[in-house]
Design a binder for these strands. Structure first.
Lengths: 196, 196
DNA sequence: TAGAATCCGGACCTTGGGTCCGTTTCAACG
DNA sequence: CGTTGAAACGGACCCAAGGTCCGGATTCTA
């Protein structure tokens, strides 16, 4: 799985070009699955060979795009100020984390859809999911009234699945703020259960 | 989309044969996606044309299998005795319904996976999902402490997604009863929030 | 600037869903 | 029963899309 860096400037330039072209295509096209690898290569002005050498396979390209988009949030979560950063009390941080995930999915509907569903292997094996789940579980652990933090983390994250978000925003025409509010309310309910 | 009945006995016999063969193949093979349509046709002793004429496309075959397996539960929910049937008080019926869905996914992991993920269009457009969601929403509506019954129904059902269940049971090696217990606990928490 | 290492790119391969149409089977009718 | 037209059969065929390959171009190093 060729994913290592290259020092040659043409390789670097092409990698960037592919990333940019793919980004644009996924934003423009209706459904992720009618963005083909050949399309991306053509839009980037590059051969298919180049594309596959740089990213391994379709999933690799999607992952690269996804991680790039996720980077700012990751920073905010790991070393940023409240309410996302580590200094936040658990009862406030959990809703903030989940809202951040939800907003990310809302802002990157097509991309998240392509990565979560299109993949041949389940989204639960992706290491970015493991990261979110691990973090959320750890924070939930610090809230005494919450049992089964592992399962609870899975269940809460499941409510932010890309295709569900897409359905709510696209099919049911619910506004972004409405979705956020309802989800926040749901999260509050889960956290409140069994404590004064 | 050719889905109507035929009176010719060879057509009926072949339809059954395909259904049985597909059922067996999905149960036997590790991953749903290495059951090809050609495999099913061969296992059923039938040509590919027959298979596609009877079910339209791959999704149609999956749907037919799924509906067949779902039929008993559907009966129990629509006209059966408590705790699944309509005579059950809402606070007891919601957990029962969700447990039934979860058990169904546990008992039909491969099939549910193939239908929910493999499809080109989102699982939320499937009419069996609409049925479950509609019913669950209606029952939730009767519990005063639950707000946003529509969203809540989506969120609860999301925790029974086939790939999540597969991950819990397959990857994390959690026992069936453990999963049921944790999910039941989660549901209880959601229902209890905001009421004595 | 020579030479080697690396990268480029598009022709080519494979796989699997879906279609087509000549042939066969069914069932209604005389 | 034999005929006959409609419906079903089945496997050769088509096509799209992901992924591979290798001769030639480009870049780095000495």
């Amino acid at each position: 799985m060729p994913e290592r860096q290259s020092s040659r400037k043409d390789a670097i330039r092409n990698r960037e070009a592919v990333l940019a072209a793919a980004d644009a295509l996924f934003a423009r096209r209706e459904s992720p699955e009618d963005v083909t690898m050949a399309d991306v290569a053509a839009a980037a002005g590059v051969g298919k060979g180049t594309l596959f050498r740089a990213f391994g396979d379709r999933a690799g390209l999607l992952r690269a795009l996804y991680e790039a988009r996720l980077e700012p949030i990751r920073q905010a979560v790991e070393t940023g100020p409240p309410p996302l950063g580590p200094a936040t009390p658990p009862r406030d941080r959990v809703p903030a984390l989940l809202d951040a995930v939800l907003c990310f999915k809302l802002d990157n509907r097509r991309l998240a859809l392509a990565l979560e569903e299109g993949g041949s292997s389940s989204p639960y094996r992706a290491e970015h999911y493991e990261r979110w789940h691990g973090l959320l579980q750890a924070v939930l652990e610090q809230i005494p009234s919450v049992a089964d933090s592992g399962f609870t983390a899975h269940a809460l994250l499941a409510a932010t699945r890309a295709d569900l978000v897409e359905h709510l925003a696209g099919e049911e025409r619910i506004s972004r703020e409405e979705i956020r509010a309802q989800f926040a309310n749901f999260v509050t309910g889960v956290l409140a259960s069994g404590s004064p």
